[in-house]
Write a protein that binds this DNA or RNA. Structure first.
Length: 341
DNA sequence: ACGTAGCATGCTGGACGCTA
DNA sequence: TAGCGTCCAGCATGCTACGT
């Protein structure tokens, strides 16, 4: 066979030692079992031959690949890159690598991708695709696959999750609008089958109830998704049903961008006619016109925390299921202002 | 034409033996 | 006793050889 990658045995032959010795040298944890002189010789030969340990082979034996599968629902959504950065940073510190797969909301597709990842012997999964009662997560738990959900949670409590504290986030948004003098505030909620959609809706209603506002003045409209198109359609319909609305709190920045589209189409302006609050603080939300007031989620921190949790779950499979909620913050820019007198 | 057994792959990790 | 070699089981899977 030509162009065959050098193996442990090739390095052993070139170094004049047994392949077990090479194996010990290549593993930093066992290198001290070999004299410094031999270790240096083996490392030099390995480098000369361009030897790379065959991870597929070592995974066969150790049943550990040191690879974590990360499943995203929409890689084009700018929320996910910073989360991914945090995950990769957290994993790499411990010698782990992430394989990223993008799947839609389709359950069959998710199952296909997850089974492929498990077939690759990933040591665990970080899922950003979770629904509130997610059969895919249940399947993983039933098969003893370490799982952590990120950004969204499965509410059955079978898997640890790392999310932003959406109740706090919505309270910050509503209090900001109340302080500006808004009395007709609406919420464009995300899909109810996602924890972000559900919890942000509850957070919005709780914040309204905690205020002196008459709850009947608050209006909730469910958007069919977290896209710009959905946001535009939602605000157009919302204003048709609730024309007195002067401020809208959205479930995501993309939905807020769709609101900008709707406002423009109606010949209105933001924030003079309608104030808009986003959610997530995706990159470049300060660059758009008007710069978006939003709830900043600690994406990178969510990622590093998810990495920490999955490694902890792998190391101690019986460790308790954790629900980690990171505190968001309000970022006031120019898409919110006092309502017209 | 089948079914079955054995082997090869590349590596780890442990038990044990040998040598200086 | 340190430093190494030897041997073996085990892992998933495809391939080959053999027997029925």
């Amino acid at each position: 066979m030509t162009n065959k990658n050098p193996t442990l045995s090739d390095v052993a032959r070139a170094s004049g030692v047994h392949f077990s010795t090479v194996s010990r040298v290549m593993n930093p944890a066992t290198r001290q079992m070999v004299s410094a002189e031999v270790a240096a010789r083996v490392l030099a030969e390995a480098a000369r031959l361009g030897y790379r340990p065959n991870r597929a082979a070592s995974t066969l034996v150790t049943r550990k690949s040191r690879i974590i599968g990360v499943v995203l629902p929409d890689i084009t959504n700018a929320v996910f890159p910073p989360i991914l950065l945090g995950i990769e940073e957290g994993l790499r510190k411990h010698g782990y690598l992430a394989i990223v797969a993008n799947v839609g909301a389709d359950e069959e597709e998710q199952l296909f991708v997850i089974n492929r990842l498990l077939g690759q012997q990933v040591d665990g999964l970080i899922l950003a695709t979770a629904r509130r009662d997610d059969p895919v997560i249940k399947m993983c738990i039933d098969q003893n696959v370490p799982v952590v959900t990120v950004n969204r949670s499965d509410e059955t409590g079978v898997a640890s999750c790392v999310v932003s504290d959406d109740v706090v986030g919505m309270r910050l948004a509503v209090e900001h609008l109340l302080a500006l003098g808004h009395r007709h505030i609406a919420h464009i909620a995300g899909p109810e089958n996602l924890s972000t959609g559900h919890v942000r809706r509850l957070g919005f209603l709780a914040a309204i109830q905690a205020s002196e506002l008459d709850p009947s003045q608050a209006f909730v409209f469910e958007s069919s998704g977290y896209s710009r198109e959905c946001g535009k359609a939602a605000l157009l319909e919302l204003l048709r049903q609730s024309p007195r609305t002067t401020a809208v709190v959205t479930g995501s920045d993309l939905v807020a961008l769709g609101c900008y589209d709707a406002i423009r189409e109606l010949g209105l302006s933001c924030p003079e006619d309608i104030s808009v609050v986003g959610h997530n603080d995706m990159p470049y939300m300060d660059m758009i016109r008007p710069p978006l007031t939003t709830i900043r989620i600690r994406h990178h921190g969510i990622g590093t925390e998810a990495a920490r949790l999955i490694l902890q779950t792998i190391a101690s499979p019986d460790s308790p299921v954790l629900d980690v909620r990171l505190k968001p913050e309000l970022v006031v820019r120019e898409s919110t202002a006092s309502p017209r007198a």
